[in-house]
């Protein structure tokens, strides 16, 4: 993916750029809002990483200007401010995701992967998802593996759907908490792990291959083949 990073703090910028570069992405950086805005409209990027507090033009204004100008490139906002109001403001400005500093690199990477391949928001979600031998039907709330029906609880169904929206990509525990449970905090108990192990148990019953892979220190990934 081509990724533009607009971040004024050099250490953070280098850390992200190095990590994403090593992962095989093409990285362009900008250090202030005006330069970033210019780069974002000129270059052909798959995803933008924008720090909230930027010199010259602040991050939220950059996002607003981009959106006002008709730019639909997915944006992830980085912020040191984690308050509820900031998050609401960030997402209302037109950003697609919001990550609070400090963050684990794996978290940023997983979120960018999810953003970069995301369908434009204007396009409706398909009624059916297929990854490998797993098939999920939203309308009939049905799941089949290799044609065999798998009965899931509502929450397990949503969990599987979130994994299947990101085929072959890691989905972190935090992303699952946000998107499946609408939690913006880390519960002390292992609710993600417990639900995942139940889901896994139901999906794998009668199969040799584990449908969901646990990526150590990062998250979970649905196995394609």
């Amino acid at each position: 993916m081509r990724i533009l990073i607009i971040e004024d703090d050099q250490e953070t910028r280098d850390f992200i750029a190095r990590g994403l570069g090593e992962a095989g992405h093409a990285i362009v950086t900008a250090t202030d809002g005006r330069d970033g805005l210019f780069q974002a409209t000129e270059g052909n990027f798959d995803v933008l990483v924008i720090d909230r507090m930027l010199p010259v033009i602040d991050g939220l204004s950059v996002v607003r200007m981009l959106r006002a100008g008709g730019c639909t490139i997915p944006v992830l906002i980085l912020t040191a401010m984690g308050s509820i109001e900031d998050r609401v403001e960030g997402l209302e400005s037109g950003a697609d995701d919001y990550l609070v500093k400090p963050f684990a690199f794996s978290e940023l990477s997983a979120r960018l992967q999810a953003l970069g391949r995301r369908l434009p928001t204007t396009q409706a979600e398909p009624n059916r998802l297929v990854v490998g031998d797993i098939e999920l039907d939203f309308e009939r709330r049905l799941v089949r593996r290799a044609g065999r029906r798998v009965a899931l609880q509502p929450r397990e169904f949503l969990l599987l759907a979130e994994l299947m929206r990101n085929p072959h990509r890691v989905v972190t525990r935090t992303m699952l908490l946000e998107r499946v449970w609408d939690f913006d905090f880390e519960p002390k108990t292992n609710i993600v792990e417990t639900h995942l192990s139940r889901l896994r148990g139901k999906l794998n019953a009668g199969f040799d291959e584990d449908a969901i892979e646990t990526v150590r220190g990062a998250g979970y990934r649905i196995r394609g083949e």
Binding site: Q153, P154, R155, W181, T189, N190, I191, T194, R198
Partner: peptide, 8 residues
């Protein structure tokens, strides 16, 4: 929420 916590 109660359903979420039940398995755990």
């Amino acid at each position: 929420l109660a359903d979420t916590y039940k398995p755990d």
